[in-house]
Design a protein around this nucleic acid. Sequence first.
DNA 1: CGCTGCATTGAAGGCGGTCAAACTGCGTGG
DNA 2: CCACGCAGTTTGACCGCCTTCAATGCAGCG
Lengths: 239, 239
Amino acid sequence: MIEPLILNLSARDIITPREDALLSSSIKRERWFVAGEDLVVQGTRPSYSTLLVDGFAARYKVLENGHRQITAIHIAGDFVDLHAFQLKTMDHGILALSPCHVAFADHSNLKILTETEPHLTRMLWLSTVIDGAIHREWIVAMGRKSAKSQLAHIFCELFIRLQVVQRVSDQCFIFPLSQAVLADVLGLSLVHLNKTLQKLRQEDVLTWSNRVITIIDWKKLQDVAEFDQAYLNLTREPR
Amino acid sequence: MIEPLILNLSARDIITPREDALLSSSIKRERWFVAGEDLVVQGTRPSYSTLLVDGFAARYKVLENGHRQITAIHIAGDFVDLHAFQLKTMDHGILALSPCHVAFADHSNLKILTETEPHLTRMLWLSTVIDGAIHREWIVAMGRKSAKSQLAHIFCELFIRLQVVQRVSDQCFIFPLSQAVLADVLGLSLVHLNKTLQKLRQEDVLTWSNRVITIIDWKKLQDVAEFDQAYLNLTREPR
DNA sequence: CGCTGCATTGAAGGCGGTCAAACTGCGTGG
DNA sequence: CCACGCAGTTTGACCGCCTTCAATGCAGCG
């Protein structure tokens, strides 16, 4: 059940079979959500953290005027709310963007890991820190890149992250978001997102139909996005 | 030297005198930077993390077209690059926005703390996680708030954060950034930032002159910003 | 067959960007 | 003491990216 998590961590350091087993025994209960359901409700104080085993989920906030901003997209192998282990209260909600298979790690178990497993602790810490690096990259894209470049950036990032957890084959991956949701990721209007998307398609950079994205010209996509994957920390080294 | 750090951590949980001393002995070397200097250079692999003892600093990235985006503002008591302890390579630079007094914590010392001090480890982890929460709040503001609201939000956030480390008195705090820098924080142009700022001033929400900001109408500022300080996690509880 | 959710297109308008110039305060040097 | 330069702030004019509103197209499904 925790294979994608192990893939995620193993891309950054060596995880021993013992550590694998320890994690596995800390993450037992599982559950399925349907698309549109809240995995975690804003304002609650969950006593566990949620590992996304399969599917897509999003962290989001809704403003008074009803506008929504998505602050993170999560895929298989991501702890969607590991930070809540430290933060206690959820300052945002987490939404299933597709059918989601999740598993829960009780905070009490995680706390025990921090008392007894320094390396695993650092690896879990690392994964929250990578979340932060992704946030920063989004800030740069939102603040100083054109809509087209920003859109290309998201596709680049997801392409790489999905590769890590083996969700890409033949330059294709399943992408179950509607354009309305993607607009809320980028902070754009649905109309403008649609028009921007068509530019990328017309330039034969990618195709997107039937919830499947195919990257046609990876090099050009990266160029448009000014994408450098360094921030994803995909180097295996002692941490 | 680490008093502001202790103020920061103590606002979120009890730090024992023993832990205080341990931290203090892990953070020995100090240094001063002048405004405009890089505290940390993008692409390097520092073997230590940098605690900002006094002053203002910013994390930033520069794009190919020369535009700069600031992704975080740091004040006294912040570890500006604690995440580098996990990430190893700096994927962005950190700039002194004022004269900065900093102190260094060797990663080797931090690693020892993770092996022997689970509670302190969690507190340091917490501080990187709060950084992430701030990033998310910025994303929401950049994506879905008006320039005026976004600007008000930054002022709200800094006002609260500066209070925690006792840098506010009489609704006033020192704010050494130029408008050009603040524009790079918000992802706006300098011209538009200036005009937005004047709206806040004309509405008697705040004043800003001689590098000192005075909050005149805190309630209104929060309303404009749609600000809720929950994400800063200023509740003292066992973590 | 009509409903529903999603994608697409067009038109009009505004927020914010760019360019350019003037202004202010301040330290330096003549 | 004044001239000068410099950095930062302010203002005005024009432009364009992106938003909003509204309508149409399209596919899946009861």
